[in-house]
Amino acid sequence: MSMLEVNNLEVRYGRIRAIEKLDLTVERGEIVTLIGANGAGKTTTMRAIAGLLAASRGSIRFEDRDITKLKAYKRVPLGISLVPEGRGIFGSMTVMENLDMGTYSRSGKKADSELDRVFELFPRLAERRTQAGGTMSGGEQQMLAIARALMARPDMLLLDEPSMGLAPQFIRQIFRIIKEINAQGTTVLLVEQNANQALAIANHALVLESGRITKTGTGRELLADPSIKEAYLGVA
């Protein structure tokens, strides 16, 4: 059984159909990446899996349980954490308080080991623990968003364009950390514009075009695919 099974998913914004007939499976322990042009429906897919958008058709199963109709906040304790596009940092809260919010779904339980873990992954956050989230740089906010999601101890981490707006060296660092998080046992579903690096670390990859999956394969296969090269990797 796959960890995440999305079948025939359709999501609408009013009359606009943003994604349709979308199938996607993620196996436990994998990194799966979803690439596609602007407006292809990547964020829509992620928000639907996290529960922030309702499916108008199709189903979403997680750990063999149908979660299609489950509210977003109830999916968190099941082990799904989203790092949203644009990061969604609580601006007036400090780094610590943001991280504390990350443990909200695990009320009452000790979170010290999670805190240690994210500080090892992101030493910068440890230095800035009393800084207000809103005053952090874009890259630091991205770290904080990922760290906050990890505080919930997710089985599956949904990352929506974690490299957006970051400098190249920061991007490399973020990808290294994603691999590290995955190596520590968290399954990752990654949406990226940075197709090159995303495909390089992905076990599986899907290409989304105008709301439909048009291509699937291993990361390596898609990296080598000429049409992908042309469309997403900036190689003529």
Partner: peptide, 24 residues
């Protein structure tokens, strides 16, 4: 309490609060 933290989170970013597990 947890209620107060949830309120502040909602005020700051409702979607983000929801995906922290807050029944917004």
């Amino acid at each position: 309490s947890r209620v107060g933290r949830a309120w502040i989170a909602i005020r700051e970013d409702e979607d983000a609060a929801e995906i922290m597990g807050v029944p917004t």
